[in-house]
Amino acid sequence: MTPPLRVLMAEDEWLAAEVLEEGLAEAGFVVLAAADGQAALELAAAGATFDVLLTDLRMPRLDGRELIFRLRAERPALPVVVMTGFPPPEGISHLHDGSGPLRLLTKPIDISRLVAAIEAVASSIS
């Protein structure tokens, strides 16, 4: 049996984060929840291990785009799933350099779609 996927989740809306965490855990993921981009970055810096980054875009302190760039600087192939209510008009190329897989989901988020997206980005590099 393969070990469960570890997901680092950055979502500042705690009401959404709570349900997402629960839903992903039920789907068999291990979730590391961070209250915003800065918290996620600090978790990663503290040595937390994770396979996939799940992040919102608009967040206080450090936004999703910046978080992706910072983490990808260390791990260029890091799989990423972005959740946003407002996709950037410039498209997803605006969000990363294309070194790793990236999926974008627009809110409202459906748990089953989210699970599928996480599995898709994770499998594309393994």
């Binding site: 809306e13 009401l15 997402l20 959740m83 209510g85 627009t106 809110k107």
Partner: peptide, 21 residues
């Protein structure tokens, strides 16, 4: 419209997630 989409997506998202739950 863009702004409205932005502002409304968060509560709509939360409503969706919690209703599912």
């Amino acid at each position: 419209c863009a702004g409205v989409a932005h502002e409304m997506s968060q509560p709509v998202n939360i409503i969706g997630l919690w209703t599912e739950r």
